[in-house]
């Protein structure tokens, strides 16, 4: 079973974000960069599939020099090899542009199965996995919390609002992860050292046959024209009272009479 995993490096979710001077991006100097949490589930599931069915796990990412660290984290978790597309001409591309790069790179990577995070927690686009599947002409199953592979077919449990569906398809296929799929393993220090010796191919757009201009910022279908921090709320109104009951009564009265929501 050949499994490819799409991985993105994102700001840690505990990061406080600040706007950059250009007004359309965030300041990146003080940010701690980590693997997208939904991609951790993807890597973990790929490793479990390899444990059960054999084969290799290949990590694929689009990024820059700093992305090497995230890719190596995936290798340290146990992936066999990694491909990182690092090319200044790919910079600033939107989700569709990223998917075009990934799908081009996947022409040289054998896969029976591709696993991706349902979304990256920076851009929140929910798009790259689906777009890669479309560009490769393979089916997709989103928001998977359980999978089972048997005789060249995969059965996935996916969650919808108030509902779980079991969806079946023949491989090859791409699925995206939802929380609950697994508990990603912790990486120990010696594994990080060992991971540095695992094969990591850094490639350019030319290496994977992508014409510059078809990807990267100039190709974008989605253009961010302004970024702002969410509006600040008015100062909190702390509810005082002589007793718990008095505080509760006062809160309910305010919600009922002023905010008109109860």
């Amino acid at each position: 079973m050949e499994v490819a995993v799409l991985v993105k490096q994102v700001p840690d979710t505990e990061s406080l974000l600040q706007l950059a001077g250009d007004g359309v991006s965030i300041k990146t100097d003080a940010i701690k960069w980590v693997m997208n949490p939904y991609d951790e589930f993807a890597v973990e599931e790929a490793l479990r599939i390899r444990e059960a069915h054999g084969g290799t796990v290949t990590i694929l990412s689009v990024g820059s020099k700093k992305t090497v660290k995230t890719v190596q984290t995936a290798l340290a978790m146990g992936a066999d090899r990694a491909v990182l597309i690092d090319d200044p001409l790919a910079e600033g591309g939107d989700a569709l542009a990223t998917a075009k790069i990934l799908s081009a790179a996947l022409k040289d990577i054998p896969y029976d199965l591709i696993i991706a995070g349902q979304r990256a927690v920076d851009d929140d686009n929910y798009q790259v996995g689906s777009a890669v599947a479309e560009l490769l002409g393979i089916p997709q199953i989103s928001q998977v919390i359980e999978e089972n592979i048997l005789d060249g077919k995969i059965k996935c449990k996916k969650v919808l609002e108030g509902l779980t569906e079991v969806v079946e398809a023949a491989l090859p296929l791409l699925f995206t992860t939802q929380r609950g799929l697994n508990e990603p393993r912790y990486v120990k220090l010696p594994e990080i050292m060992k991971a540095k010796k695992k094969p990591l191919d850094v490639k350019t757009l030319a290496d994977i046959g992508v014409e510059p201009g078809t990807v990267g910022a100039a190709s974008n279908r989605v253009k961010i024209t302004a970024m702002k921090l969410p509006p600040e709320r008015d100062a909190v109104k702390m509810i005082d009272g002589d007793s718990v009951q008095a505080k509760a009564a006062s809160l309910v009265k305010i919600l009922h009479e002023e905010a008109k929501i109860l």
């Binding site: 939107d94 686009n125 996995g129 689906s130 777009a131 479309e134």
Partner: peptide, 23 residues
């Protein structure tokens, strides 16, 4: 932008090679 809507929007946008805004 339900679970189904996001799944569909992403694939449809790739098929039509067009821009999509989620959420």
């Amino acid at each position: 932008a339900s679970m189904q809507g996001k799944d569909l929007a992403a694939r449809l946008a790739a098929r039509l090679d067009t821009g999509v805004v989620m959420e």
